[in-house]
């Protein structure tokens, strides 16, 4: 059981509630291996598939401008059974019908795999920012949010949320084989709908910060020096010091931290 299991349920409940309130959901499904997921996509996917920039004049639409509403986070669990692999849920308008728009954007990536643990949290979170790996898709360099653009050329070729979802799944599963199942939720309707998701996101960020701090402690520090370890003649000295510090690290459970 992972720390985020309850939040996976909360997201599902939130989506269900929106649906019950009359918001129509589009659902796509493409489970399985990365090659199967990305097969037939209208854009290239993978490392350096894109140069990372879409200029303003080449933009088809924008997602997640803070003024329109923006919320994104990653959930993971070691119980893949909680996830319906390959499922992509979209609530709100799709890309082809939104030329020139600046849509609110909520994005939740949910990953499952028996081998996943808190040690993987930081790297899993990074998969939200795949700016140069999806042709025709750019993510702006903004802290704590996904604020992105779809290019005109990609849109002309049929880039939609199924494309984006499948591309993200293929990227994650290729780079992290321990992710056995993955599900994605996109919200593009109404600032208040995205802000509703933010309530869950705030909790996720708090937990995430705690995990990051704990991971810092586990891996320890390198020592200050003016060069890089790989080429430094003092590496052995540093290693000794790291070892001393590591010895000082006693396992300690149940720590509290004043929220800051």
């Amino acid at each position: 059981m992972s720390v985020f299991d309850a939040y996976i349920r909360k997201v599902a409940e939130y989506v269900e509630a929106l649906h019950e309130n009359g918001l129509e959901a589009k659902v796509f499904s493409r489970p399985g291996a990365p090659e199967r997921i990305s097969g037939g996509l209208p854009v290239r996917v993978g490392p350096n598939a894109h140069r990372g920039i879409i200029l303003r004049s080449d933009t088809y639409l924008e997602l997640g401008n803070p003024l329109a509403g923006s919320c994104a986070f990653v959930l993971w669990t070691d119980r893949s059974s909680l996830i319906e692999d390959g499922r992509i849920t979209l609530l709100g308008p799709d890309i082809p019908e939104s030329a020139g728009e600046s849509l609110p954007f909520g994005q939740v990536l949910i990953m499952g795999g028996g081998g996943l643990s808190v040690k993987d949290h930081e790297s899993l979170v990074q998969y939200q920012y795949v700016s140069d790996q999806i042709e025709g898709y750019m993510i702006k360099s903004a802290p704590d949010r996904v604020w992105s653009r779809v290019g005109k050329e990609a849109a002309d070729r049929g880039f939609d949320f199924e494309t984006l979802g499948r591309a993200l799944m293929a990227i994650v599963k290729s780079a992290e084989p321990r992710v056995e199942a993955m599900e994605i939720v996109f919200l593009t309707t109404g600032k208040e709908v995205v802000q509703g998701l933010e309530k869950i996101a705030a909790q996720i960020r708090k937990i995430g910060k705690e995990i990051v701090k704990e991971n810092w402690k586990i891996r320890g520090y390198d020592i200050e020096c003016a060069s890089d370890c790989r080429s430094c003649p003092e590496k052995r000295v540093c290693d000794d010091i790291r070892e001393v510090i590591a010895v000082r690290k006693k396992g300690s459970k149940g720590k509290d931290r004043g929220e800051r």
Binding site: W216, G220, Y221, E224, C225, A226, C229
Partner: peptide
């Protein structure tokens, strides 16, 4: 420095 080490990007402190 530790962040850079983890990212595998060289870090220079002048």
């Amino acid at each position: 420095h530790e962040t850079c080490r983890e990212l595998d990007v060289p870090f220079l402190h002048v």
